[in-house]
């Protein structure tokens, strides 16, 4: 009997691992395809805007040509924004699953996923779990993606820090009795006042790699769950990204 249980446990573990691998691959593929889909209209925008400027810069500017190029620029930009709308609706469409989720467990799982990235950068991950954290209603995988994204961003923001403590703190809390809150706190470079307003915009990124969709997608996931995602940051000290979701155990009010 004991052996059969062990086998089942092992099988379950394999299934979970497999699910993780599939999930990560899918995120990677999604990112690559988004990059291509958006880069194409952007290339059209750049080519046509360049042409427009070139026609205007002539000794006797050719307004007809400039106008035609400007119109194609608009078409390209419209196409790019349609791609983004498609991505948004894709995310919203895949949000039907609403099950009871214990976020403490999700955090634990996510830390395991981010572990390689953290140890590669020599960054300790510390947790502070609220006891008796109420469950939330939502899509476990999507919430995991949000936490993973926040963690990877935090790790990235500390990769260039050498002169002071590097640490990632993931914390769960109960807010005002009816909100479950998860925060990811890093001691990285922080977000400049200049970048702050654009942080959650699609395709905004300060990194040379990455397409700047992580926070935009994360925020739309959290909002689709009836919650909110925000950031507090001090340049040179670090950032706290956190989200709050309504508790899902029925004892809300």
């Amino acid at each position: 009997m004991a052996e059969q249980r062990r086998t089942e446990e092992a099988l379950q573990k394999t299934r979970t691992e497999l699910a993780r691998v599939v999930r990560i691959t899918t995120i990677g593929e999604l990112t690559a395809s988004i990059a291509h889909e958006v880069n194409q209209p952007l290339a059209a925008v750049v080519a046509n805007a360049d042409a427009c400027v070139a026609w205007l810069a002539l000794q006797s500017p050719n307004l007809m040509e400039a106008r035609a190029a400007a119109e194609r620029t608009i078409q390209g930009a419209t196409r790019a924004s349609e791609v983004i709308t498609r991505i948004r609706s894709l995310i919203n469409k895949t949000a039907p699953e609403k099950v009871q989720v214990q976020l403490n467990d999700v955090i634990e799982e996510t830390i395991a996923l981010a572990d390689r990235q953290a140890s590669k950068n020599n960054i300790p991950v510390v947790t502070e779990f609220a006891q008796n954290l109420p469950v939330v209603l939502g899509d476990r995988i999507q919430l995991q993606q949000v936490i993973l994204n926040l963690m990877l961003n935090g790790i990235e923001s500390m990769s260039s820090i050498n002169h002071r403590l590097r640490r990632l703190l993931v914390r769960s809390q109960i807010h005002e009795d009816n909100q479950v809150c998860v925060s990811v706190e890093d001691s990285g470079i922080g977000v400049s006042a200049e970048n702050m307003p654009r942080l959650f915009e699609p395709f905004f990124t300060t990194r040379s790699q990455g397409i700047g969709m992580g926070l935009a997608i994360s925020r739309s996931i959290i909002e689709a769950h009836g919650g909110r995602l925000w950031v507090e940051s001090v340049v040179g000290q670090g950032s706290v990204f956190q989200f709050a979701l309504p508790r899902g155990d029925g004892s809300a009010s």
């Binding site: 059209a44 080519a47 046509n48 042409a51 390209g76 196409r79």
Partner: peptide, 16 residues
């Protein structure tokens, strides 16, 4: 294969 890119590049080249 992308008409917008094609036309943009063509226009740019004709401008010089």
């Amino acid at each position: 294969d992308d008409a917008l890119i094609r036309d943009g590049i063509q226009s740019l080249i004709r401008s010089i």
